[in-house]
Nucleic acid binder design. Structure first.
Lengths: 131, 131, 131, 131
DNA sequence: GTGGTCTAGACCACC
DNA sequence: GTGGTCTAGACCACC
């Protein structure tokens, strides 16, 4: 997991977002144990309280379950996975479309730009990997 | 101008983004006078210091210039308009594509979702306007 | 507000319960400003973080609203007051009835004991006030 | 025996309370053998230390006595049964009345609510048992 | 070892 | 002044 310490987005929210992502795309599966608070704090070089706050909010969201003394586990409910993924995708796309429209782009222009930049990004990645 | 006070994005950055947007799509044209700091602060119900910081940074970016005793004006250089618009669009699209890829969506899936949500958003807007 | 530092009930939960109570019985009315985090922390002689945690959870519960830089206010929605009161009363009574039943008391015995102890408590209070 | 792992009430206190209850209503009679610490720990899926602490405190309270190599037994003194029951009932009722009063309920309102919820709970139980 | 609560205190954004 | 985030570190309950 990589954090950006130079953004205004709080660290605990970045942590939540990354777990959501990993749950949404199946890197983390229902029932999987996630790192202990202290372990993750050590890995990310942040304070244990910051990780705990992230875990606590994920618990409230129903994404994980905590067993005292045993650790924290991805919620068993499969439905939550799909839901999380859909919520993330929809809000991402909606915010994007809204922002593009506020800059005067309509459907065609948006699609064109997405295609253009997508291909550009792909090309760069290939370049980085020396393909 | 609408601000979101509950996000972690600093108010002054939200103000800058909105001016950039208005300049990029021509709502504000080169040479246009923008509101005085005090006036805008009153409108937005925001502290004058916050507006001042936004204006100062926009000056550094070369987006506006302040004339002592006369007010603050959108920069005359026409090139800056296109440049601002392009920068905003490119970073918006790139961030979006990157985020969608991190959620496991490739070109086709992205295009489809954008189309889907765009149409949905259009429909809702029409509904709200009673069309 | 009085806290019990010798119980296992976390301080932040005790704080939440007391605000709920004051909102439920109208000591605090919709829109009322509650003490600043620092002020309450000073009054209760607890850490500001502990108060903040209580306030944060009350915000999630929709009991209060926070305006950055201005303070924290009792939620405007009148419905939440009634709801809070009902939830508190119902869970209190239900837990009590459940516990009494688990000790072998049925309706009549419960009512009798409540009456008995209620009168006893009243008498003692009068005694304390020298009536 | 059912434990609640998500409450702030320590497990060992929950265990004590349950034994008290069983003694108070005669499920456990003077002289009865209670489960070995290891057995109960296994049943409750709880650490043996936790059960040990509960047993130790019950011994201090005079509720049980441990005979080396034979096990732990409910105290022979009959008086302790009545006493335990009375203590539990009185503190339960007193705490309840106190809490209801702090929420603005006086005798009549309390009695009414108890009656209401008691009947409601009875009805639900009957429903669950398909009566 | 694992999570839960709390303290002391810093720094920031915004009023 | 007011809330928001974060760190460092303590102590507790439970595994």
């Amino acid at each position: 997991m990589e954090l950006n310490f130079n953004t205004s987005i709080p660290i605990y929210l970045q942590i939540i977002r990354e777990f959501k992502r990993q749950i949404a795309i199946g890197i983390l599966k229902p029932g999987d144990k996630i790192p202990s608070q202290r372990e993750l704090a050590g890995d990310l070089k942040v304070n244990a309280n910051t990780v705990q706050r992230a875990y606590r909010e994920m618990e409230i969201l129903g994404l994980v379950e905590t067993l005292r003394g045993q650790g924290t586990f991805v919620c068993q409910t499969q439905a939550i996975v799909e839901e999380t993924r859909n919520e993330m995708l929809t809000s991402l796309v909606d915010d994007f479309v809204q922002a593009m429209k506020s800059l005067g782009c309509e459907e065609e222009a948006i699609m064109e730009l997405v295609k253009l930049r997508y291909d550009e990004i792909q090309k760069n990645h290939r370049g980085e990997r020396g393909e």
